[in-house]
Simulated scan of single mutants.
Amino acid sequence: LHLFYQYNPKGATWGNIVWAHSVSKDLINWIPLEPAIYPSKVFDKYGTWSGSATILPGNKPVILYTGIVDVTKHKSKNYAIPANMSDPYLRKWIKPDNNPLIVADKNINKIQFRDPTTAWMGRDGYWRVLVGSVRNHRGKVIMYKSNKNFMKWTKAKHPLHSAQGTGNWECPDFFPVSLKNENGLDTSYDGKDVKHVLKVSFDVTRFDHYTVGTYDTKKDKYFPDNTSIDGWKGLRLDYGN
């Protein structure tokens, strides 16, 4: 098992963020390894912020992460892959030179644009990923699509979901949950008796909230149930800060 997390190797305060990496066989005992991702390229020179991992066909892991490209904190979406798949610890990760994969267009706030989710594949064979953002105090998750090669991404015509007055959305997660059993589902699962969960972190409050609802796979739109409230009055994931 691999755990990646945001970490400041220089102190217990925010800053100098790298991707720390630990491994475990039982989720109890963990072995810390050297950082997997740290600023080293022109597309992440000023920071390597949050993102997610996706397992591609052939059991090949890939990490999508947020790179800080300049002192104004403009952000891009980059990828990293293991340098040696035969290493069970996956100690070393490389960031290919064809990065970045995703950059903000003129209609996107380039500063409030971060934290790509784990990707999922639709019935049409296209990968999808979400990136947190905001426009005029309306928090949203922007969807991007890619063909099977995972390398060329195009912004969808509309966000998967948004909510007025919620401010910038960070660290989104989007995944299916079964209504029939307690087993987890692959992010690409598309079947009966399923609801979807959209979790976001509100930059205004620094709290994580979530809604439960329905994902319309034909329209690529998410609709929270009537019992799920968008915003900081809704369901809260935890009470940490």
Results as ranks from 00 to 15, higher is better:
1 L>G: 01
3 L>W: 12
4 F>W: 07
4 F>N: 02
5 Y>N: 01
6 Q>H: 05
7 Y>N: 11
7 Y>L: 11
11 G>A: 12
11 G>C: 12
12 A>P: 12
13 T>N: 10
14 W>C: 04
16 N>T: 10
16 N>E: 07
16 N>S: 11
17 I>V: 13
17 I>C: 03
18 V>A: 05
18 V>D: 11
20 A>I: 02
20 A>M: 01
22 S>H: 06
22 S>G: 08
23 V>N: 04
24 S>R: 12
24 S>D: 05
24 S>F: 06
26 D>V: 11
26 D>F: 13
27 L>M: 09
28 I>S: 06
30 W>H: 02
30 W>M: 08
32 P>W: 08
33 L>K: 01
33 L>C: 02
35 P>G: 09
35 P>V: 09
37 I>M: 07
38 Y>C: 06
39 P>H: 14
40 S>L: 11
40 S>T: 07
41 K>I: 06
42 V>L: 10
43 F>H: 02
43 F>V: 07
44 D>H: 06
45 K>R: 15
46 Y>T: 07
50 S>F: 03
52 S>W: 00
54 T>D: 08
55 I>R: 02
61 P>V: 03
63 I>R: 02
69 V>N: 03
70 D>G: 06
72 T>N: 15
72 T>E: 14
74 H>T: 14
75 K>I: 07
77 K>G: 15
86 S>W: 14
87 D>Y: 02
88 P>G: 14
88 P>C: 06
90 L>N: 02
92 K>L: 13
93 W>D: 06
94 I>N: 10
94 I>P: 01
95 K>W: 10
97 D>V: 15
99 N>R: 07
100 P>D: 05
102 I>S: 02
104 A>H: 04
108 I>V: 08
108 I>S: 00
109 N>S: 07
110 K>D: 13
110 K>M: 13
112 Q>G: 12
113 F>Q: 01
116 P>E: 06
117 T>V: 10
121 M>P: 00
124 D>S: 04
127 W>M: 04
128 R>F: 12
128 R>T: 15
135 R>P: 03
136 N>S: 11
143 M>D: 08
147 N>F: 09
148 K>R: 15
150 F>D: 10
153 W>Y: 02
154 T>P: 01
155 K>G: 01
155 K>Y: 00
157 K>A: 11
157 K>E: 08
159 P>D: 03
163 A>D: 02
166 T>N: 00
168 N>W: 15
168 N>A: 15
170 E>Q: 15
173 D>C: 13
174 F>H: 02
175 F>V: 14
177 V>N: 10
177 V>H: 07
185 L>G: 13
185 L>T: 05
186 D>C: 07
186 D>T: 13
187 T>L: 06
187 T>P: 08
189 Y>Q: 01
191 G>F: 05
191 G>L: 14
192 K>C: 04
200 V>P: 00
201 S>G: 05
203 D>L: 14
206 R>A: 11
210 Y>H: 09
212 V>R: 05
212 V>P: 00
215 Y>K: 01
215 Y>I: 08
217 T>K: 14
217 T>I: 02
217 T>L: 04
218 K>H: 09
219 K>H: 03
219 K>W: 00
225 D>V: 09
225 D>P: 05
225 D>T: 12
225 D>M: 10
226 N>Y: 13
228 S>P: 06
230 D>G: 10
231 G>K: 05
232 W>M: 05
232 W>E: 09
233 K>H: 08
234 G>D: 00
235 L>P: 03
236 R>V: 14
238 D>T: 11
239 Y>H: 08
240 G>P: 03
241 N>F: 06
